[in-house]
């Protein structure tokens, strides 16, 4: 069972996605902001992080940069999950170090494909 860290400040979206992922068989832990996300990543060592980008305290780009600069945490794949769907938003996420990018509203199958790809790649590595 993969442990997924969902960093999302919107309560409804956090609840919705964590429930849906749980239904799909993932263990989901949640953080409300980037700071909390980074702390949980350190203590819980999830298999994958779903990172919202516009977050209070520490935003998703900064949190991702932090995770990717840590020797111990940088192997954890990060998928940017954002409602910023304009041209260039994906590029911005990749520059912060995200491994993949998906937009809200979440299309669950599409997201699961991306997650599975990263999770299986990681386990092979």
């Amino acid at each position: 069972m993969y442990k997924i860290l969902l960093v999302e400040d919107n309560e409804m979206n956090r609840d919705m996605l964590s429930r849906r992922l749980t239904r799909k068989g993932f263990v989901v832990i949640t953080a409300n902001d980037g700071q909390q996300g980074v702390e949980l990543a350190e203590s819980e060592r999830p298999d994958l992080v779903l990172m919202d980008m516009s977050l209070p305290v520490m935003d998703g780009w900064e949190a991702t940069r932090f995770l990717k600069s840590s020797e111990e945490l940088k192997a954890i794949p990060v998928i940017a999950l954002t409602a910023h769907a304009m041209a260039g938003d994906d590029e911005k996420a990749y520059q912060a170090g995200c491994d993949d990018f998906d937009t809200k509203p979440v299309v669950l199958d599409r997201l699961l494909n991306k997650m599975n790809h990263l999770l299986t790649t990681e386990s092979i590595n």
Binding site: N10, M12, N13, M16, S54, A83, T103, P105, L108
Partner: peptide, 25 residues
């Protein structure tokens, strides 16, 4: 404005589409 509007509308839509899909299942 368009970028913001897009962002602001997508957030609640995410909940609407996500919950309705989940509950439908």
């Amino acid at each position: 404005f368009l970028a913001n509007m897009s962002h602001e509308l997508r957030t609640p839509l995410n909940a609407i589409i996500g919950y309705s899909e989940m509950l439908q299942e």
